[in-house]
Amino acid sequence: MSFNMRRFGEVTLIEVAGQLIVGNRQELKRMILAEVEAGTRRFVVDFALTGYIDSSGLGILVSLSKKIREVGGRLRLASLNEDLRTLFELTKLDTLFEICSSREEALAE
């Protein structure tokens, strides 16, 4: 399980390969905060390769999105499969996040 980071112009995309859960959420947080520190403002977290997310994983996304907004940045979530999307809908977090159906859409202006 890993987080793969790629840069597309000004956008930093992080691919969650495996799970985003209590055991590894801090790693994602550190990764994104380091990027924020370095001046990146536009982020996409891509879930195309993700198995599942737990409440801690959702929580870390909530606090990251808050952090990114505070510095005037933007966080988009991409490629959620049906199960993952349901997770966001159940918790009503779909109203909090900008959710894009594809990576291309998320990377677009």
């Binding site: 737990d54 409440s55 801690s56 959702l58 929580g59 870390i60 909530v62 606090s63 808050k66 997770l87 159940l90 918790t91 009503k92 977090l93 109203t95 909090l96």
Partner: peptide, 16 residues
């Protein structure tokens, strides 16, 4: 899911 709890990082475990 309540608006006042929506932006909290915790508290979704039992619900899920």
């Amino acid at each position: 899911r309540l608006p006042e709890n929506l932006t909290l990082p915790d508290g979704r475990g039992v619900f899920l």
